[in-house]
Every structure is written in structure tokens, then in C-alpha cells.
Design a protein around this nucleic acid. Structure first.
Length: 373
DNA sequence: AATACCGGCGAGT
DNA sequence: TCATACTCGCCGGTATT
């Protein structure tokens, strides 16, 4: 049975996951700077760094950095390794690790490809030292079975366990018992709090809030006024380590596929670009046995601004043809009214999104096997 | 007045 | 200098009921 509301939550975060996976596949690159890249195909080296190992990080390579800049940064290191993303490979390793974690507690939540939470309140009978031992065991098992290191955090909820895991990386194991939550958080920079990024740090500073202590004591009405009825209180909760969200799998809400165009365009062959995107999304819907109730497009302009258009459709669908059709129509009107006011609307990246996902009802609706390759 | 929908934004991996 | 591919959640505006 559950132990009242005193929970014990473990957060497991695989270290520099893509790059470490590459090291597992090819151990000879260990010790060299390893940079996993998303090559956009515009030029030989255009694109961004997805992640890198700690050797590369120490030399200044960061996630999101242009590949060209990473190359420059590592110019003096001829042994540096630049690899393209291999998502299928990372997916399969991730799924092995998640199977290990799932076996530790029925209260399991995968929050990303390389992160998961476990509510082990029952397994440990609310005892944090037992959770610590379990954390050791989990780390040992992932290392033995997949040759991967991870960082583990343990706390009274997801929020604290996550920040505990973040506090010692890579290969860390951090325990924050309830009585230590506030002292633990108080030592952090405000921008290290989960959910508080650069923009929020900036806004908080304008309000005279620069530390975790100040945020924890801030007037909730002031926060709500400036950040909204939900985000305001949430910010203060983050500073106090308060989080009541249960550890449980959340259903998928949307899928999207996006690509970078060879060059910025305001006119392109819709069919050509949209087809493969829609095909992937259709396949994914089939895979998950879901139907999309809304279809949308994403356009990232030459100025790197994101624009979206969404349309709710009458009958939920997983059909590639319908996704292409609706996306085409949305792009047409997007370019039509986007251009009317001022100048050309140049687009750099385009994407398609399906959302409003639902499991198909057992109504007789002809399955679109036609779309299955 | 409440709910639905949409587009923008911020954050995270 | 260049600047990926996703996913999720919230906000405010507007439309619908």
C-alpha cells in the first residue's frame, strides 16, 4: 500500500546519451571528442550539434551549436569524431534501458529518450536509504547490461529527483531527503531550477528576483500577475521543491516531422517535400494505433521565426494522403495571406504535425491499408 | 460565462 | 561566422455554444 503522501522518487538520466551510445558501438572513440550532429543537408557541414561527449564539452562544444562552429572549436583536435545521428540505434538502446527500469516499479514514467522516473515509495517502504541502495543497483545493472553510465537523483517528487540527478553529472548518484530539499535548492542558481530557462530568469530579474531564496519567498500574486495563474505558482513551487505530479506514463499527444529545405523558399513542390513527412507520420500513427484529429504545418522562416497553422478535421485519420492534402492546403493559405501584407515570406524549414490523437473507436471505418508500404 | 480552438512562446532532451 | 529535430505545456486572443 502507499505510504500516505510521502513519496520516494528516482530519476534516471542517461549520460550524454547519443554520444555515449556511439562510444558503446565503437569503443575506440572513447577519450576522443565525440560530436553527434544533425546534418541539415544545406551544405557539407550545415546543421547543429545534437549532443557531445564530455571530452568535447570540456573543449567548449555545446548542444545546439552550429556544426561549423564545433568544427572550428575542435580544429586543433584532429582526432575529434563527428557522427550523424542514428536515431534507430539510440531508440533500441533506450528501449532496453527502459525495460530494465520498468521492472523496478510499476510506477514508471519515461520522460524522454534518455530519462525516466520511478516512484519507489512502496518498494522502499518510504525509506530513502533503501532507495539509495536501489539507485546503486539500477546504475550497476544499466552499466552491466548496456555499458552505459547514468546519473541518478532521488527525492520526494519528480522535480527534486530531477534536479538531484542534474546536480552531479555524469555518473552521479544524489540523494535529497525531504529535510534537505530547501537547503539543496537554495545552493542552486535560479536558472538551474527545472522549468526556469533564460527568458524566465530575465523576467524574474526585472522583478528583483535573482535567487532561489527570493523566488521561494516571492509574493504569489505578483508572480501570477506576470507569469499567469498556472506558471506563477509553478515557479514558486520549483523554488520550494513542491511537486505533486504523479509518476505515471502520459499518453502521446502529437507527432511531428520537420526538414530543412535546400535553400530558403517561398514556393516549392508541396507534394515532393510533404510526402515523405506525411508518410512517416502516417506510419507512426499506425505503429501507435492512433488517429489524428488535427493536422498542422510548421514553417521556420529565414529569420528563424516559427509559424504554425493547424486544422481540426472532421474524421480522425491516419491516412498519408489526407495528411498531405490538409498540409498542402494549409501551406497554400499560409503563403497566400502571409505574403499579402509585406514582402516575400521566405521559409527555411517546413514540417508537418498531427495532434489531437485518439485511439480508433471500433466503428467501421475502412482501414487505410493502401498507405501501408 | 464557459469551453474550444488556434498561434506564439518557452523549456526541455 | 551559424542557428536540428523533436515533444510538451501554458498563455492570450478569438470564436462558438
Amino acid at each position: 500500500m502507499s505510504i500516505g503522501s510521502n513519496r520516494v522518487v528516482i530519476c534516471v538520466d542517461l549520460d550524454y546519451f547519443y554520444a555515449q551510445s556511439e562510444e558503446v558501438r565503437n569503443p575506440s572513440i572513447k577519450g576522443k571528442p565525440v560530436v553527434v550532429c544533425v546534418f541539415s543537408g544545406r551544405t557539407e557541414i550545415s546543421g547543429a550539434v545534437s549532443t557531445s561527449n564530455y571530452v568535447a564539452r570540456r573543449l567548449g562544444v555545446r548542444s545546439g551549436m552550429p556544426i561549423a562552429l564545433a568544427k572550428k572549436t575542435l580544429a586543433r583536435y584532429p582526432d575529434a569524431v563527428f557522427l550523424p545521428m542514428d536515431t534507430d540505434y539510440y531508440d533500441s538502446i533506450s528501449s532496453n534501458v527502459m525495460d530494465i527500469l520498468r521492472s523496478k516499479s510499476p510506477a514508471f514514467e519515461q520522460s524522454s529518450i534518455d530519462e525516466a522516473y520511478l516512484d519507489v515509495s512502496n518498494e522502499t517502504e518510504g525509506d530513502f536509504s533503501r532507495a539509495y541502495e536501489l539507485g546503486k543497483k539500477i546504475r550497476a545493472e544499466i552499466l552491466e547490461r548496456e555499458k552505459l553510465t547514468c546519473s541518478v537523483g532521488i527525492g520526494p517528487n519528480k522535480l527534486v529527483s530531477k534536479m538531484a540527478a542534474d546536480s552531479k553529472k555524469p555518473d552521479g548518484l544524489t540523494l535529497v531527503v525531504p529535510g534537505e530539499v530547501q537547503p539543496f535548492l537554495n545552493k542552486l542558481e535560479i536558472g538551474k531550477l527545472f522549468g526556469i530557462g533564460p527568458k524566465t530568469v530575465e523576467k524574474l530579474h526585472e522583478l528583483g528576483i535573482g535567487t532561489v531564496v527570493q523566488l521561494a519567498q516571492a509574493d504569489i500574486r505578483v508572480l501570477s500577475e506576470h507569469f499567469g495563474e498556472k506558471l506563477g505558482p509553478q515557479l514558486r513551487d520549483a523554488a520550494m521543491g513542491v511537486d505533486d505530479n504523479p509518476v505515471q506514463e502520459r499518453g502521446v499527444e502529437q507527432f511531428s516531422r520537420i526538414v530543412t529545405l535546400k535553400r530558403d523558399s517561398n514556393i516549392f513542390d508541396f507534394q515532393d517535400v510533404l510526402e515523405p513527412l506525411a508518410a512517416d507520420l502516417s506510419k507512426k500513427l499506425l505503429e501507435y494505433n492512433m488517429l489524428a484529429g488535427s493536422i498542422g504545418i510548421i514553417a521556420i522562416t529565414a529569420e528563424l521565426k516559427t509559424k504554425t497553422r493547424t486544422r481540426k478535421i472532421e474524421n480522425s485519420t491516419d491516412s498519408k494522403a489526407e495528411i498531405v492534402h490538409v498540409a498542402s492546403s494549409l501551406f497554400e493559405s499560409f503563403f497566400a495571406d502571409g505574403n499579402s501584407s509585406h514582402g516575400d515570406l521566405m521559409v527555411r524549414r517546413i514540417g508537418v504535425r498531427v495532434s489531437n490523437l485518439a485511439k480508433p473507436t471500433k466503428d467501421k471505418k475502412e482501414p487505410s491499408l493502401v498507405d501501408f508500404l
